[in-house]
């Protein structure tokens, strides 16, 4: 019985689509998170008036339960009452009756779930990278400045490489979490429209739990394992380099 589940899964176009979506969803959101978190950490590491408050605002998406933050976005991206569309219409960028359906058109829906997931993951990555930055002894960037390195050389040749192990940890955590989570997608689109935003975890859930086909659900989620093993291996290597273990 075992193999039959796998072959039936592999021939299922929805599954293949979900597999591809999983990669798109993970890679795109992690790239956005990484760039955003580095920018934010760069800004937040300096003392400035109002820093505590800024930090509070920036952390909100992480501490609020994901499902609840996603509901907030569902309202912001509503098909009729979207505030984004209201602004776009007022700016004459779109026409009132052909405003984008953020969660109703396949490409836009995928973009929306990626952005909302990025929104949720960004603060945590920022906190980790910020911690990495504070862990660099002050002497080292100073030495680089005296050695004649400008702002960008200091950042790209000294600080970021020194933080690489901890950035790796942040990325790998993010990859694992993103690859195996379905909350944002479940709330915003339920995998729709027409399964175009379905990812492996959500497909496993819909098939295994809601569709009551436990065996096929399990078969779908098994496909997550090879990737997770690879990620775990990478993670341990970089953790070892960061002298975590």
């Amino acid at each position: 019985m075992g193999l039959k589940n796998f072959t039936s899964v592999l021939q299922n176009p929805t599954f293949l689509r979900a597999l591809r979506n999983s990669f798109v969803f993970t890679v795109a959101s992690q790239i956005l998170v990484l760039v955003g978190a580095n920018l934010l950490a760069l800004v937040l590491k300096n003392a400035f008036p109002g820093r505590r408050f800024a930090r509070f605002l920036i952390l909100l998406p992480w501490v609020a339960p994901v499902s609840i933050g996603s509901i907030g976005w569902k309202w912001i991206l509503d098909s009729l009452y979207s505030v984004i569309n209201w602004v776009l219409v007022r700016l004459h960028l779109v026409k009132e009756f052909s405003a984008p359906m953020w969660l109703g058109e396949p490409k836009l829906a995928m973009m929306s779930v990626i952005l909302v997931h990025t929104w949720h993951m960004l603060p945590f990555a920022t906190v980790i990278i910020l911690a990495g930055w504070t862990a660099i002894p002050k002497d080292i960037p100073e030495a680089a400045a005296v050695d004649g390195a400008g702002f960008f050389r200091r950042m790209f040749q000294i600080e970021l490489p020194m933080m690489l192990p901890i950035i790796n940890v942040a990325v790998l955590f993010g990859v694992i979490f993103t690859f195996t989570d379905m909350t944002v997608i479940y709330i915003l689109t339920r995998g729709g429209p027409y399964d175009t935003t379905q990812v492996l975890p959500s497909l496993a859930f819909f098939t295994g739990i809601l569709g009551s086909d436990l065996a096929e659900g399990a078969a779908i989620s098994i496909f997550l394992v090879p990737l997770l093993v690879a990620v775990a291996w990478l993670m341990l290597r970089s953790a070892h380099r960061a002298e975590v273990v």
Binding site: T180, L200, P201, A204, G208, I222, L224, A232
Partner: peptide
């Protein structure tokens, strides 16, 4: 320690069934 940590990586979606 590593072995224990690895179990954390097993995703919920694998486990809920």
């Amino acid at each position: 320690g590593i072995a224990i940590f690895l179990t954390y990586l097993v995703p919920p979606t694998l486990l809920f069934i």
